[in-house]
Amino acid sequence: MSALLSAKNLSLSFGGVHAVRDISFDVEQGEVFSIIGPNGAGKTSIFNLISRLYNADSGDIVFAGESIISQPAHRIASLGIARTFQNTELFEHETVLNNMLIGRHVHRCSNLFSELLFLHSVRKQELEFRRIVEDVIDLLDLQSHRNQVIGSLPYGVRKMVEVARALCIQPKLLLLDEPSSGLNPEETEDVSFWIEDISRDYGATIIMVEHDMNLVSRSSDRVLAIADGAFVALGTPSEIQNHPDVQRAYLGD
């Protein structure tokens, strides 16, 4: 097994605040890797570094053998990395279906004129995209919401649509930012099921930032604990839960 993604000595600060300090970790191909930590520990900052929303002060990120530290944010999807957001970032005025179809944007290879004329090749491509989207709809049980506009959907469904859009990119690496935040206990339980499905059916490697320790222990292969932007511990969920440094980070001395 080789590492799909390696973070090497990442550091990031905003003015005097050190959001991420010298963090390194490897994520193996096919695993579910969780990042935990108290509020403000720098979990989402690490995500934003990987997805190139923030520029690291120092360090490197290597994805599939290639450094991505200076790639622009819009190149991330075509490299095979998809992400979701803590508070969902969707196209509010569009339907679930359109939100998912645009996930295929980077895979679309047709030019302006063939699109305007709706040539055979464009039609074939559309049909293929639609099939991929329908598979994702089936996986995540979104059938009944297919033609609804995002603005009219409850929060839990929106979070699912965001995951669905990310899957339509057919990513090698999926970044889930607090998939259970704002969900009720029942929905949170579902999260662990679809994470398993995604990992199995799509072969996607998953990195997840999560607060719910139940979900983390059930779904993750390995867990990275951080506090105040710095490394605390890395290991299996049970190792992390019983780690004295982790308990100190959450509860104090």
Partner: peptide, 30 residues
């Protein structure tokens, strides 16, 4: 109408105008 309805570029423009972050992460150079 045809441009915004059917072309990759037109749709990308609509996407970028609705949500920049989301547009970036489906691969649109905003």
């Amino acid at each position: 109408y045809l441009f915004f309805r059917f072309t990759r570029l037109g749709i990308a423009m609509q996407a970028a105008s609705q949500n920049q972050l989301a547009a970036y992460y489906v691969g649109i150079p905003v």
